[in-house]
Design a protein around this nucleic acid. Structure first.
Lengths: 179, 179
DNA sequence: CCTTACATGTAACAAGTTACATGATTAG
DNA sequence: CTAATCATGTAACTTGTTACATGTAAGG
């Protein structure tokens, strides 16, 4: 469900092609609602059928022709309606946590290595988030209200990443004590 | 993929019926890999076809007959193999974060209420986690190695919940400053 | 020549959700 | 009489993933 609304939000900000949208999803929405171009094209078709979008063909000579999508009044109304509703919390499905239920079957060496790998990945992620925060959100007064909310979304990722690193610290101690 | 292995893990610990498993998933695995009974029955069928499980029919007089599943050698081997591999990180898909990208279209009153509701839900969750920790993991020395790992899984949820509460604090301040 | 960017899709498959379906026993 | 527990499933639908498919132009 959310994918459609994520697309509507993106198109409410600015009309775009499927290609544009897939780039935006890869860049800014990757940590919020990742989507492949296949999924985006399929979803755009559905939204079009529902009358929530319109298309305009744009012929180009030096580049392939493209389809520019815009949100309609009906689409905007549906979006506003969705925004007005309390959305369900995401469900957690984490293979690493599943593993921890295997108990004695676990290979501690492998697990330690996996946690180490995870730590590195999260540290990278955290660094990226901090760089974005520095670059775009260091002077809160200068940011329009529209983008203030996105800072909040970034903070969410940042704090989550920190919590995971904290957990990894704990896990290391825990595993060391288990020998 | 992980669902099959979560089932194998549960059955490696102890043979069980689909019904038993769906209870276990609702209780102990709800925060790790939630699964409905429909999904579980379907998956058991597949695992059986693959030869990773065996069934034994158990006739009961006062209760409906049941099918008791056990893990096979092949199943155990496949499970060990899976445990040995580094599993992919879960993807985040959070409708609330999607909302934050809507910017000006957001209704701040509604959003504040939604965050308030979320806070209550997470506080409840945290309380539950802390109660479990108290009840089962307060004396680490007494717990068998097998269950030590599950404590770790619980700590993960606990720290994540705390981080979310911290974020909600920030969000409140942030929203208040935006007026 | 090879890769990247631009630009759009189809098709098959896997996984998760929701609705429907049945039927006994026990506790309030 | 009603709800909960025990016990098993099927079917339709939605969403997400992976593989396949095509074609131009620019830059190294």
């Amino acid at each position: 469900m959310s994918l459609s609304y994520a697309l509507l939000i993106a198109l409410a900000e600015q009309p775009a092609t499927g290609y544009d949208l897939s780039l935006r999803f890869r860049e800014r929405l990757a940590n919020v609602w990742p989507a492949s171009h296949q999924q985006i094209y399929r979803e755009l078709g559905k939204l079009l059928d529902q009358g929530w979008l319109t298309v305009e063909m744009v012929s180009q000579t030096e580049r392939p022709d493209k389809k520019c999508y815009s949100i309609t009044e009906a689409g905007l109304a549906a979006l506003r309606d969705w925004l007005h509703q309390t959305q369900p919390r995401p469900t957690i499905r984490d293979p690493l946590l599943v593993k921890l239920f295997a108990g004695d079957l676990l290979d501690k060496t492998q697990l330690t290595a996996e946690l180490q790998q995870l730590r590195r990945a999260i540290e990278d992620e955290l660094t990226r988030y901090q760089a974005i925060e520095q670059a775009y959100f260091s002077e809160p007064e200068k940011i329009s209200q529209h983008f203030q909310y996105q800072h909040l979304a970034l903070r969410y990722g940042l704090l989550a990443a920190k919590a995971k690193l904290q957990w990894l610290e704990e896990a290391d101690v825990h595993l060391a004590n288990m020998d």
